[in-house]
Design a protein around this nucleic acid. Structure first.
Lengths: 268, 268
DNA sequence: TAAATAGTGTCTGTGAGACACTATTGG
DNA sequence: CCAATAGTGTCTCACAGACACTATTTA
């Protein structure tokens, strides 16, 4: 590494030509992608998991993801792995956090750059992988697959930590789980990402990545309520949304009920 | 990598014992730390830069930082390098973003996990490295060292990009700089970090990492105004701050003026 | 036609923004 | 004593929270 280069009398060009990093141990770096969607009736948050077919964690459920190549950014790698492993493309994709605990992979030293992907109605998208209903509250994180009945539950506790002069609270999943588990530290990635999503969701236009091109306001409100985990008042919600949408003039059926409702589209 | 392991008839233990990642090319991973402080009179934001003594970018100014070791987290590495290179310890330190452009280091494939560190009055702290005044607006990012007179200026432009269905605006520094430059992509790290700081600052208690144990409200307000880049109304500011502080009963001199003012302390 | 949901009008409380005023301090 | 800054009182306005009501749709 540069720190150990003592001869400064060579030019940068000469330095680069003679540079070798072979002597230094390096980590593998992967991306893991949390894909969040909703069901047809916008009553459940859905997470896309893949059952691992290889060691380590053979047979465990894991987030899609994989190793980053030398010629691509982490973002590109996330998009590529997402497409390769699930078939999804052209979706909202954003870096969340980089997990670097040296013990997080039993094989060797592996870091993971976590990404969040947002999609809409999962019954309308063709993907490989299995969709799990996700619930997170202060006491537990639960994943449930309706077809297979597989259920993964982690108890959650609040942990305080100090950073500089300030104390922060963090939700931490306990590894003391009796039933099915997730691979690696993917519980942490899910929890971190969903908390971050909740923080930003209200003051961003993220929601429009999770509804079709046109949608009804009752549906959009149901989406907000699902992700924020609280009821919203219709009038206030509509006032907040108004400047971001326009009516198409048509009426379509809501997903959340069976009634006709005005159709809207996003106008940035 | 796991994807290429086809034999699932072995146990995980056997797999791990036989696992070798030597065949796969791996990136080096560093941390870079943006250390932000203020001057005595709370009129300038200060950034700690180090003049590089090695190739590449020999003689260029760079953020403190360095390679992550196999036995530590990125956070630990950031804290260690910060101490080794500047002497700073026990400061607020938080992960900001991971930069992964394969071209960002001329030597080879190097990713960087960027951290933000907050300190207080830089004239009161003993550090190695040089403190630069930082200004960021929509048109430029400028760094200026008062002692040496060194000035580093990058023009900034707004770039729009699409993520999913939503369009976002990003501040991007142009590399078209005549004078002194920063090493690597450290301009980007500075811009990203400061924008992130501004976003969170108002709704967090971060500010209390940048004032002494006890402080005056005029000083605290000056800090908020400096970082947010706008004037605040005294009454409203004090109402916002009130639940987070308590008076000590003493009176001390403000840094921002020469007048006596009530002394407060942070109470979480 | 009744139950349920879509959609609108409007009251209220909170808090940021704004300004004016008094009190204290340093030169 | 005067200029500057510390500190307080209070008005306004925007907006989220809350509730009540009408209109439409489905069963």
């Amino acid at each position: 590494m540069a720190e150990h280069t003592t001869s400064n009398s060579i030019t940068e060009k000469e330095f680069l030509e003679s540079y070798s990093d072979a002597a230094y141990e390096k980590p593998s770096v992967t991306t893991d992608i949390l894909v969040l969607g909703v069901d047809r009736s916008i009553t459940n948050l859905k997470v896309l998991l893949i059952k691992r077919k290889e060691h380590p964690y053979l047979g465990y459920y894991a987030l899609p993801g994989g190793f980053i190549r030398k010629d691509e950014t982490a973002y590109r790698a996330a998009a590529r792995k997402l497409y390769d492993e699930t078939g999804l493309k052209d979706v909202y994709l954003n870096q969340i956090y980089t997990f670097t605990n040296p013990e997080r992979d039993p094989r060797t030293w592996v870091m993971s750059i976590a990404y969040l992907a947002l999609v809409g109605d999962v019954d309308n998208i063709e993907t490989r992988g299995e969709w799990f209903n996700l619930c997170i509250d202060d006491e537990r994180m639960s994943l449930f697959n309706e077809e297979s009945g597989v259920e993964i539950i982690y108890p959650i506790s609040v942990q305080n930590f100090q950073n500089g002069r300030i104390e922060y609270a963090n939700l931490v999943a306990s590894d003391d789980v009796s039933g099915e588990k997730l691979a690696f530290d993917h519980v942490e990635i899910i929890i971190e990402s969903v908390l971050k999503l909740r923080t930003f969701f209200e003051n961003s236009d993220m929601a429009f990545n999770m509804v079709p091109e046109t949608f009804t306001l009752p549906d959009l409100q149901a989406l907000y309520e699902l992700i924020l985990g609280k009821k919203l008042y219709k009038t206030n919600f509509r006032a907040m949304i108004a400047p971001k949408v326009e009516m198409t003039g048509e009426k379509i059926k809501s997903c959340t009920s069976n009634k006709m409702s005005a159709e809207y589209r996003y106008i940035g």
